[in-house]
Design a protein around this nucleic acid. Structure first.
Lengths: 155, 155
DNA sequence: ATCTATTCGTTATGATCATAACGATATACC
DNA sequence: GGTATATCGTTATGATCATAACGAATAGAT
């Protein structure tokens, strides 16, 4: 079974000894998110939902009807992006949309009965998935990670 | 009265009190990566490079010529994705490609002189950018975060 | 009431991402 | 040698992502 060696024939360059990609938080965060996301898709894969889609459904479940724009902010998605996610969820009849009667700019998004039922099925799975992602950490480290990540993510 | 499919005056649902999206690591990791990535693009924005593109260049700088596939693994990108990144970098003459003479499957990727020069310009900026991303944390917390993220990201 | 600034949703463009399927090449084993 | 298996790069499909520009609707100030 051939596998290309991770060893390089050519020597590294000048500053290489004083710089490593692994020391950059962004790179570590990207890889950690990849792991968490793939765990989620693997766990809820049979429902054919992505992590952002699940987050959108979960937020609606928590908060009730929301304007598309506010929903986007609450799941950290730009207007152009939350739009596409809502369209896909709407196509699957997991959410429904209607115009706000008092503010005609707004599109109110809400879960359908099927959406509510799905979220209630998925929440326990997601909690288990989070536990799986955090499995490499010891008990005390998990709370610590939450605290640190929350500080980084705050706007 | 609202239609059945879109109704839901209730602000929050049953399980909402026992579940919060913020308690899911994946969501926090996604937002933290968003922040780190936007910091990087903001800092090196004038060079018109994305975070994955920078990571690719930095890895090549560290390791010297690599096959496209191995390069992808070293920056955590699937073959189909690293291909596109390499194509964009190649179009800008930051990397060059050639076939491996002993293994005709491989495409060897290496930095051009312009690529090397660019990376050496960017590395100090990236280090500063990492510091900015980590600014909300105290000194001791930064090392802790690295340790925790590394544990999560390891395959 | 009118003018201005802001907000909301849309459109367009381009760059990640993951996955599956495929041909070409290389290796392992007999 | 010859065959089964593995790897490499490509193609295709679909879902995120960010950004900029735009019209419609609202809110704020005077």
């Amino acid at each position: 079974m051939p596998r290309t060696s991770t060893k390089s024939a050519a020597p590294a360059r000048r500053l290489a000894s004083s710089y490593r990609l692994e020391d950059q938080v962004g790179f570590l965060l990207r890889r950690a998110y990849q792991r968490a996301s793939s765990n989620l898709v693997e766990q809820i894969g049979s429902y054919d939902l992505t992590a952002p889609q699940y987050a959108t459904l979960a937020r609606l479940y928590e908060r009730g009807p929301l304007s598309q724009n506010l929903l986007g902010r609450l799941v950290a998605m730009e207007p152009a992006n939350i739009r596409d996610v809502v369209l896909r969820l709407k196509k699957r009849r997991l959410v429904a949309t209607r115009r706000d009667p008092t503010d005609k700019r707004l599109i109110l998004i809400d879960l359908t009965a099927a959406g509510v039922a799905l979220v209630e099925q998925l929440i326990p799975i997601e909690i288990e998935c989070t536990a799986k992602t955090l499995a490499p950490l010891k008990a005390g480290q998990k709370e610590l990670l939450y605290q640190l990540l929350s500080q980084l993510a705050e706007r």
